[in-house]
Write a protein that binds this DNA or RNA. Structure first.
Lengths: 283, 283
DNA sequence: CTATGTGAATCGCTTCACAGCA
DNA sequence: TGCTGTGAAGCGATTCACATAG
């Protein structure tokens, strides 16, 4: 039943809001960069800019961790790096396994960002005997048969699934059964896991689809929208063929460029099944 | 200034909530699976389960698109597939470029999920002359010098950045200057883009860090928390060395297993700089 | 006088519960 | 009767604005 990113829906211990937790790594990265440049302190304003958020949010976020700043001055970079690292659990060493050593799995194995933040790739696992024994990113690929032993021997609690969609749930079940309680899922499937197991999902095609939605908004409305409007009014059952006109629309729209977009957004209507709905949000 | 996922903060045309947009691809995937099994209709309950959300949310989401269901019956699978596809802009063909053909870029180029949903990889681009000319996923890798020409010739409006962090902003600037208005960024950096350009970010190490946070919660509190509590009480400046004890904690905690987690969460306190903070949020 | 830390206002999303339609 | 569609309540996150501390 528990799946997706539902984090202990009822009993949130006392905690840091989930939205804040999701931003801590961002702050940490910005702080690490400052630290490397030997910058001693930052203001919330500067750090917020570096992390890509606004300063009020950043201050509120930090307030959940404690009062780590100095009024009139700012935050001590080194101190904050340590506090955030500790809060995120990065002062510890987390062994992870990557299951599914295809293109993506290999990319993950080679990804430097893991090792640099307390994550250690304990093993690479694949079901393909042609792969097992080979070296990827300096580690031997081991066979799925060994999965349970690997988890136990290395006391792995975090697993990364980079298998095809079809294999993901079974791999997930085995990981969980062997003791893994956090899963990062790259396979395009909804995983179901027991309570107490966290799943985070990274889905490349979903991200692109979200972009396409916004892109369509930018490009479409004032140009080729007759097409969409017409098909929207259709009776059920009449499925329109794929349009193939995006490039033309996009090109035309692109000429208008960035600034025009904001202006256009205001006078724009969405074609809906109900015909024309006036904009609800006044500018 | 505009960066991260801030989508037209003020002027939201009339629209579908962002949270809903982010779920549409999920529904679409579930529906596509049903369609392939020739299932004619689904109830909100069934579809919600397949997509990993609850049915109220799903119905509310669909209500933003229009009234596509039939009371007492459910939703017509084919019809809904089409409507969602159209809403997301997937009835069009979106040429994308991938910049940075390292491990990750290659993985993306090979990723089937792109092609299957209206996205066409128009070109692979890399700065490394050793790579250019080579074939990856059936496409020749082209040099960064050609970037602007490629964007224009193929009328590309969506770009994927899979370069090292250091190169990302410059690539981004060039993409935007050449006409790209949506960017999917895999590089661990905050990109700044002009208004009207959408950026979505996928950060592997951030996802892992979020998992680590929750993992630490599960494992830590009742076991080795003395360590964290002690160091939290320290004066500024005393940076504790990396702990390396995660595995031991995790192992011990894991024995207690999933069910214990929920129970433990209730009686747990966060160690803070101010010592002990009582739970602010009453259960 | 500057920049943090935080109550209070606001916003948007989720959930509830039921009216309305097939 | 069964399931959708949706006002209204609830809840968490963001933003505002200022008291507070250095």
């Amino acid at each position: 039943m528990a799946s997706g990113r539902s984090h202990r829906p009822a009993t949130r211990s006392r905690g840091i809001p989930e939205a804040t937790v999701a931003r801590l790594p961002l702050y940490l990265r910005a702080l690490t960069a400052l630290s490397e440049r030997s910058v001693p302190t930052v203001s919330s304003e500067e750090l917020a800019a570096a992390a890509g958020v606004n300063s009020a949010k950043l201050r509120k976020d930090f307030s959940y961790l404690g009062s780590y700043g100095t009024r009139g001055v700012g935050y001590d970079v080194e101190y904050l790096v340590y506090q955030i690292s500790r809060e995120l659990g990065l002062t510890q060493d987390w062994p992870v396994v990557i299951v599914g050593i295809g293109n993506l799995g290999a990319a993950l194995a080679n990804y430097g960002g893991f090792a640099s933040r307390g994550f250690r790739v304990a093993a690479l696992i694949d079901a393909d005997h042609a792969l097992t024994g080979r070296n990827v990113a300096g580690l031997p690929v081991r066979h799925t048969d060994e999965l349970e032993d690997i988890i136990r021997d290395n006391q792995v609690s975090i697993g990364v699934i980079a298998t095809p969609a079809g294999a993901a749930q079974e791999v997930c079940d085995r990981l969980v059964a062997a003791g893994v309680t956090s899963i990062l899922n790259f396979a395009p499937t909804v995983l179901s896991v027991p309570d107490g197991v966290d799943v985070r999902k990274v889905d490349l095609s979903i991200e692109l689809q979200i972009l396409a939605f916004h892109e369509q908004r930018k490009a479409g409305e004032d140009l080729g929208e007759a097409v969409a409007a017409a098909s929207a009014g259709e009776e059920k059952g009449g499925l329109a063929p794929r349009a193939k006109t995006a490039a033309a629309k996009a090109a035309a729209a692109r000429t208008a460029a960035a600034k025009a977009v904001a202006a256009a957004a205001g006078k724009t209507k969405r074609p809906g099944p109900d015909g024309d709905v006036p904009a609800v949000m006044p500018a």
